[in-house]
Amino acid sequence: MPEIFGTLIDVFTRTLSGFLEATVITLQLTAVGIILGCLLGLFFALLKLSKAKPLQMIANFYITVIRGTPLIVQIMFLYFGITEFVTLSNYWAGAIALGVHNGAYIAEIFRGAIQGVDKGQTEASFSLGMTKSQTMKRIVFPQALRRSIPPLGNQFIIALKDSSLVYVIGVAELFSLANREAAQSFQPFETYLIVGFYYLVLVMIFTYLLRWYENKLDFDKD
């Protein structure tokens, strides 16, 4: 037993600086994925909630296609599949793929949250003379945001873990590095255990921050 701890600590210290650098890349990819995902998500949620049928159809198409295909296919497609039109660096291909992928899920989260706001809220707002856009901006969105935090947090955690899939196009994020390290050192047991630990810590920090933000927004709580 103490031997295992010994080697674990050895591997941990040896990989520390490399893994920390890779963690930064992982966080960057996740951040781009989430921010782009939220923008796309909001955009397509609004399309889906609009009264115009063609706009709804566009949103449905995006959501169905993205949710119906594996992320790894989307990553490969963006990096290798469209070189005739645009050439993306592997970093950006990965980041955009993550954003587009998460956008489809986040669109559904936003749509549900907006629809979940009690109809009485819009009616009260209208009855006071507020316009549709004032009502959306000042009454519906703030409440929808509050409702979407828990599922959104969940999606952020998925995005963080999913960022590991961009290893297939060789972005130097955590998991790519772990793969290389495991192969070179012949210590896959320790290496994968340690990289798992990195993800776990990141997820826990995420969870903590989200809970803090949720509490800050929690006007319904007694």
Partner: peptide, 10 residues
């Protein structure tokens, strides 16, 4: 004025 008040909770 509505039966269920419809105050803005936020």
């Amino acid at each position: 004025v509505f039966q269920h008040f419809n105050l803005f909770p936020h």
